[in-house]
Design a protein around this nucleic acid. Structure first.
Length: 491
RNA sequence: GGUCGGUUGGCCGAGUGGCUAGGCGCUGGUCUGCAAAACCAAUGACGGCGGUUCGAAUCCGCCACCGACCUCCA
């Protein structure tokens, strides 16, 4: 492998050289969304972060299998004491839908947003509800190995026993004693032997809709299980990268490690990656805090914090301007800055395509290329790579202005760099052509030309009128002169 | 309360011991019939107080403020 890719590992809290278990293959698993409401900016950050990782690993020659799940079952919300409820079921009740209708609706919404953001579909996008049997098999394995127990038809993971042999808290840095101090409602944990134990299988209440038969009870799997199961199924008992939002680090990912170790006796993941949160006015954006901005609101500009609508690539570029492990503060002003910056980048790339080489370069394109890859190899530091790309844009503009010169070889290098990094790796698109505004403008321009043409016809300047008609025809626009005016149609 | 992280110029955001990231904005200039774009230049910053060092935004200590996780969350 030509590139020495380094990655920050949440498990060791160090930036490490990336070495896959089985090169050139790379197995990568990312925790996807729970589909019970509209996708928002936080989902975008998760998706774009791992999309760039996926694209970059492919770009530098790995064969990546990227699994990103969709959670469609098993998330309980609310206080344990007063009526815990599955999030999807709750939404179903509110919207008067079948739970699977809720899943279908928001799964589609999520995938649609991914597509317009130019986020590549993962290799496999499994659903938790499609892996109930596998989840039950894993529970059985954990039970057989003695790290779980059954109470009243529910199965719980035995943290105390696990911790005697292994280390619960190794990922999150949590200490059992500290966790115990902070456990609330000690007396509510009647089914659990130990307050920190978590559910692998939960017996369903009489009104619970999403439930499946099992040897323990009619019920549903615990949330942490699906990722362990699907990761193992598609990527093996030990795979290379597991990613997700920082908010999933504890307890979700900690529990995943415990389950996998208890079931298979092996560390499931080599490199744990966690992307940071999007904040709004310094606060985490989250569905539960009700301060999130949905994707639809970006397109329509309908959110109070937005002064107008934004294009998908603006949002993508906005996210790319901060490193994935930093928080990113959202504001309308920051979005506008991203929009202008992106436009500058795209225009520069367009100019690059028409640039004329001369014998010698006054600056080094090779160094620019080296700097970009150096940044990308340093824990996916795309903000720094982008800063180098902007240096390149200045160079391109200067050459265009005749203030600098560039050799043919350097020109080739530059074109390759921008094509590969900007489009292939960062996944940006020049959306100028297909924007609504442009289309509107085009039709207004046609109308304007027709006005000139009709003025020409009135003064019997048919040569001019015919020329306009001919030119428009060449552009694929047909003109019909009728009794009640001139109509046009795009062919 | 416990654990962890952050505080960088008007805004967003990189940077971990010396070599002023970058984007947006503001100001001046070049260009232009005018404007825009582009280019050039200028401006401007490392929360506070100490310490280590020839030298600190960068290392150490204390303080202040903000946030994340500890319940579901990307």
């Amino acid at each position: 492998m030509q590139h020495q890719f380094h990655i920050y590992n949440s498990l060791t809290k160090k930036t490490e050289l990336f070495k896959p278990v089985n090169p050139p293959h790379v197995g990568m698993y990312v925790c996807g969304p729970t589909v019970y409401s509209e996708p928002h900016l936080g989902h975008v950050r998760m998706a774009v972060t791992y999309d760039v990782l996926f694209r970059y690993l492919n770009h530098i020659g790995y064969k990546v299998r990227y699994v990103r799940n969709i959670t469609d079952v098993g998330h309980l919300e609310g206080d344990l004491a007063d009526g815990e409820e599955d999030k999807i079921e709750k939404k179903a009740r509110i919207e008067q839908l079948e739970p699977m209708e809720v899943v279908q609706k928001y799964k589609y919404a999520f995938q649609h947003v991914m597509e317009i953001l130019n986020v590549l579909p993962p290799s496999i996008e499994p659903l938790a509800s499609g892996h109930i049997i596998e989840q039950q098999l894993m529970i059985k394995k954990i039970l057989d190995n003695g790290y779980a127990y059954v109470t009243n038809g529910s199965v719980y993971f035995d943290i105390e026993k696990y911790h005697r042999k292994y280390h619960y808290g190794k990922l999150s840095g949590r200490k059992i004693e500290d966790l115990l101090v902070n456990t609330r409602d000690l007396d509510r944990q009647d089914e659990k032997r130990y307050p920190l134990d978590f559910a692998l299988w939960k017996k369903a209440g009489p009104t619970h809709l999403m439930k499946w038969p099992s040897e323990w009870s009619e019920g549903f799997p615990g949330w942490h299980l699906e990722c362990s199961v699907m990761g193992t199924k598609y990527l093996g008992e030990t795979f290379d990268i597991h990613g997700g939002g920082m908010d999933l680090l504890f307890p979700h990912h900690e529990c995943e490690i415990a389950q996998a170790v208890a079931a298979n006796g092996k560390e499931p993941v080599r490199y744990w990656m966690h992307n940071n949160m999007i904040t709004i006015e310094g606060q985490k954006m989250a569905r539960s805090l009700n301060n999130f901005i949905t994707f639809n609101e970006f397109f329509t500009g309908t959110h109070v914090k937005l002064t107008r609508a934004y294009k998908p690539m603006t949002v993508r570029f906005f996210v790319l301007q901060a490193h994935y492990r930093s928080t990113l503060d959202f504001s309308d002003e920051a979005l506008q800055a991203a929009e202008k910056g992106l436009a500058r980048m795209m225009k520069g790339i367009q100019i690059l395509q028409g640039l004329k080489p001369s014998g010698k370069s006054t600056t080094s394109a090779k160094e620019l290329v080296r700097n970009c890859y150096k940044a990308m190899n340093d824990d996916l530091n795309y903000p720094v790579a982008i800063s180098h790309l902007f240096d390149g844009i200045r160079l391109i503009n200067s050459v265009n202005d005749g203030k600098e010169t560039i050799s043919e070889e350097d020109l080739r290098e530059l074109k390759k760099l921008y094509r590969e990094i900007v489009f292939d790796v960062l996944g940006l698109k020049d959306e100028k052509q297909d924007s609504e505004k442009e289309r509107l403008l085009a039709s207004e321009l046609v109308e304007m030309l027709l006005e000139f043409r009709n003025e020409a016809r009135l003064r019997k300047d048919f040569a001019a009128a015919d020329k306009i008609r001919e030119k428009l025809q060449q552009l694929g626009i047909r003109i019909d002169d009728t009794k009640d005016g001139t109509h046009w149609e795009m062919l």
